[in-house]
Amino acid sequence: MIASTAINPEHYVSEDTFQRELENVFKQHWLFIGFKDELANHNDFLTLEIAGFPIVVQNFNGELSALLNICSHRKARLQTASKGNRPLRCPYHCWSFKEGGKLAGIPGNNQEFQLDEAQKEKLSLRQFAVDSCGDFVFVRLAPEGQSLKEFLGDCYGMLEDFSDHFTDPVHSGKYQWQSNWKLAVETVLEVYHVPGTHPDSFSHLAKAECDIISVPPHNLGNTPLLDAPKKWWSGVRKQLKLIQHPQLNEYNHVFVYPNLAIGITNGSLMSVQTYDVIDRTQTVLHYRLRMLGTAQGHAKDGALKRAVVANFSDFNHTILEEDRLMAESCQQSYAHTDTAAILGKCEDRIRLFHDAWRNDMETRP
Results as ranks from 00 to 15, higher is better:
357 W>L: 15
75 K>C: 08
325 L>Q: 11
258 P>W: 00
77 R>D: 05
10 E>I: 09
345 K>V: 12
134 G>N: 07
236 V>P: 02
2 I>K: 15
364 R>K: 03
84 G>N: 03
26 F>W: 12
74 R>Y: 05
300 K>W: 01
195 P>F: 08
275 Y>I: 01
211 D>L: 10
218 H>L: 04
145 G>N: 14
180 N>K: 00
83 K>D: 09
252 N>S: 08
168 D>E: 11
216 P>N: 13
1 M>D: 04
239 Q>T: 14
184 A>K: 05
340 A>G: 07
20 R>C: 00
70 I>E: 14
98 K>S: 00
199 P>C: 09
19 Q>R: 12
146 Q>N: 13
219 N>C: 09
109 N>Q: 01
295 A>G: 13
133 C>W: 00
5 T>R: 13
283 T>Q: 12
141 L>T: 05
364 R>V: 01
159 L>D: 00
61 N>C: 09
137 V>N: 03
175 Y>I: 06
307 A>V: 06
56 V>D: 00
228 A>P: 09
27 K>W: 04
340 A>W: 05
178 Q>T: 07
201 S>Y: 10
133 C>S: 05
282 Q>D: 13
278 I>F: 00
211 D>T: 07
252 N>G: 05
274 T>R: 00
230 K>I: 02
237 R>A: 05
16 D>H: 13
210 C>N: 14
130 V>D: 02
87 P>D: 11
50 I>S: 01
307 A>N: 06
104 A>G: 15
256 V>S: 04
329 S>G: 14
262 I>K: 00
339 T>R: 12
62 G>V: 01
293 G>W: 13
29 H>C: 02
185 V>H: 00
233 W>F: 07
20 R>D: 11
344 G>I: 09
62 G>F: 08
44 D>C: 04
259 N>V: 05
33 I>W: 01
111 Q>V: 12
200 D>W: 11
235 G>H: 14
163 S>M: 05
68 L>S: 08
257 Y>C: 13
233 W>R: 06
99 E>P: 07
305 K>Y: 13
307 A>L: 13
27 K>T: 05
212 I>S: 03
25 V>I: 15
56 V>S: 05
164 D>R: 15
338 D>P: 05
336 H>M: 10
258 P>Q: 15
292 L>D: 10
328 E>P: 05
360 D>E: 12
122 K>T: 12
247 Q>L: 03
38 E>S: 04
117 E>W: 15
230 K>P: 07
91 P>E: 05
32 F>A: 06
79 Q>Y: 04
126 R>N: 09
72 S>F: 01
92 Y>C: 10
83 K>M: 08
105 G>Q: 11
266 N>W: 07
134 G>F: 01
294 T>P: 14
121 E>T: 07
277 V>A: 02
55 I>R: 01
253 H>L: 06
72 S>A: 11
15 E>L: 15
9 P>Q: 08
39 L>Y: 14
86 R>C: 12
344 G>E: 01
241 K>S: 08
319 I>F: 09
227 D>T: 09
117 E>M: 10
228 A>V: 15
48 L>K: 10
354 H>F: 08
307 A>R: 14
77 R>H: 06
264 I>W: 06
365 P>W: 14
42 H>P: 05
286 H>S: 14
365 P>Q: 10
85 N>R: 06
157 G>P: 00
111 Q>E: 15
52 G>N: 07
127 Q>R: 13
314 D>Y: 01
151 F>V: 10
137 V>Q: 03
250 E>M: 00
292 L>H: 06
12 Y>N: 04
